[in-house]
């Protein structure tokens, strides 16, 4: 069992200034990394024996239109069963966001990334099967973006030309 302080030290010692930001709120620690460091930080978190974050609890996409330069972010919640700790790592993304997939680290990210893609338009490079997951095949738009209306009739109608393709 390693305390959260030790995990912070280890991560900061490894990456130093590449960790852009740290937020401590309600006993939870959040690190912000650049999209380029995303893969490296996450694989370190999983593979390093002092970190051993063996489970990805969820991978959440987010839209912050007030942050003009980087309106999107992806948040990964990691769980370490070995040390009983949780860690949150997030990265800010510009318009037309892309990120490398983490399905090779945690296969459970498959649905998460598909959901983030269809809901927010965040593309994950190298994802084995990046299709729409929860909405219909012909759905237009990205529902979880803040500019998407709550009410409306986009998509959802029966499209006969898609017969046999779904």
């Amino acid at each position: 069992m390693i305390s959260l302080e030790a995990i912070k030290e280890r991560l900061e010692g490894q990456f130093g200034s590449r960790l852009l930001d740290r937020a401590d709120f309600r006993d939870e620690v959040t690190y912000a990394v650049a999209p380029g460091d995303w893969m490296e930080v996450l694989s370190f978190c999983r593979d390093d024996p002092q970190m051993a974050f063996d489970q990805l609890d969820c991978l959440v996409g987010d839209h912050l239109p007030e942050r003009a330069a980087a309106p999107f972010q992806v948040v990964a919640h990691l769980v370490s069963h070995t040390h009983g700790q949780r860690l949150r790592i997030k990265t800010a993304l510009a318009e037309d966001p892309t990120l490398p997939t983490v399905t090779n680290l945690w296969p459970s990210a498959g649905f998460d990334e598909r959901e983030a893609w269809e809901m927010l338009g965040i593309a994950f490079e190298g994802h084995p099967d990046l299709r729409r997951l929860l909405t219909t095949e012909d759905f237009e738009g990205y529902p979880l973006r803040k500019d998407f209306p709550l009410r409306g009739t986009i998509g959802g109608r029966i499209r006969t030309e898609l017969k046999g393709k779904i």
Binding site: A23, F25, R26, E28, D57, V60, V75, H77, R86, R88
Partner: peptide, 20 residues
């Protein structure tokens, strides 16, 4: 202002809520 994640044990597994 802030973000939290809280996971609880529901009958089917772990149910987590992330709020920003």
């Amino acid at each position: 202002k802030g973000e939290v994640y809280r996971a609880t044990e529901v009958p089917k597994g772990e149910f987590g809520v992330y709020i920003r």
